[in-house]
């Protein structure tokens, strides 16, 4: 009897908790949609409709405006959605791949091996992570213009090999979940170190790689200031840089086109995110985990 009551109250609590979870989650989900709705509903407005009310969903002639905004974007001589997409795609994809792969490698070097300069190297990475980037930009742009890194996509891609924050994450992750026993047994089986890293350690780190890859991709894709300064050639510009060109003069901003441009910029990102988010959602049953 007493047991039944207890069970009953547990069940009741369970339901209450569920309700709370749903209410809070749905509230946050709706909030999340806000900025996207804003982008969408302004992309089919005329500039003057945007100026009159950015948050309203209404437009007098949505289709006509959408067509006009699209024409505005594509007829701007500096704006080529195709070229911009290609450049953004190349920069974001390659820098993400380099970023996560080499960060894993570096983190593995720090975690798995005992070497003399290890602590020093680790401290260096931490220190680099803590350098405020604002002023170092002055030197970087100066250097880039001097030695001709301008208009090279690689100037935006290659630096991501050294991503201290991602190394830090990977190291923390490895410390928690890498068991040296697996590595040892692989060694006994005669596998080389590099192969062990690629075939055993990398798969082990998939959840970490997926999350950091998303962050890196988003960061690289949305990066605006450096590309604006380093990519001056119209054929090298990335999508966000091209959208920035729609701004024009203070008095001649084409807001409808700008929002459509922003929307076009964010859509591929959502696709990439949807693809990678699978790993966050499902989780991966891990084999050799430290217990």
């Amino acid at each position: 009897m007493a047991n039944e009551v207890k069970l009953h109250s547990i069940k009741k609590n369970e339901t209450a908790l569920k309700v709370v979870i749903y209410v809070v989650s749905i509230f946050f989900s709706i909030m999340t949609l806000f900025p996207f709705v804003m982008l969408i509903c302004n992309s089919y407005k005329s500039t003057y409709e945007v100026q009159a009310s950015t948050l309203s969903l209404y437009s007098k002639e949505p289709l006509k405006n959408l067509a006009f905004n699209w024409k505005q974007i594509t007829s701007k001589d500096a704006f080529h959605p195709g070229v911009g997409f290609r450049n953004s795609f190349i920069v974001a994809t390659l820098s993400t791949v380099l970023n996560v792969y080499f960060s894993c490698l570096t983190a593995y070097a720090i975690t798995a091996y005992e070497w003399k300069l290890r602590e020093g190297f680790n401290a260096m990475i931490m220190a680099v992570m803590m350098i405020p980037g604002t002023v170092t930009m002055i030197g970087f742009f100066q250097m880039a213009y001097k030695i001709g890194l301008v208009n090279k996509l690689s100037a935006l891609i290659l630096p991501s090999i050294a991503a201290p924050m991602v190394v830090f994450f990977m190291r923390q992750y490895l410390q928690a979940s890498l068991s040296m026993e697996i590595v040892q047994s692989a060694r006994i089986d005669g596998a080389g170190e590099f192969r062990i890293f690629n075939q055993i350690v990398i798969p082990l780190m998939k959840p970490a790689i997926a999350t950091q890859a998303i962050f890196a991709y988003v960061g690289s894709w949305n990066n605006l200031f450096s590309p604006m300064i380093l990519l001056t050639d119209k054929n090298k510009k990335t999508l966000p840089v091209m959208v920035s060109l729609l701004n024009g003069d203070i008095y001649k901003k084409e807001y409808g086109a700008i929002y459509l441009g922003l929307l076009i910029t964010v859509l591929p990102l959502i696709v990439v995110y949807a693809f990678l988010s699978k790993y966050i959602v499902e989780g991966v049953a891990l084999g050799g985990v430290k217990s």
Partner: peptide, 18 residues
């Protein structure tokens, strides 16, 4: 030695760009 070997890309990139 693999510790050193695996950290080369990071160090090199850092020295070149940062």
């Amino acid at each position: 030695k693999y510790g050193y070997f695996f950290s080369i890309p990071f160090i090199l990139t850092f020295c070149i760009f940062t």
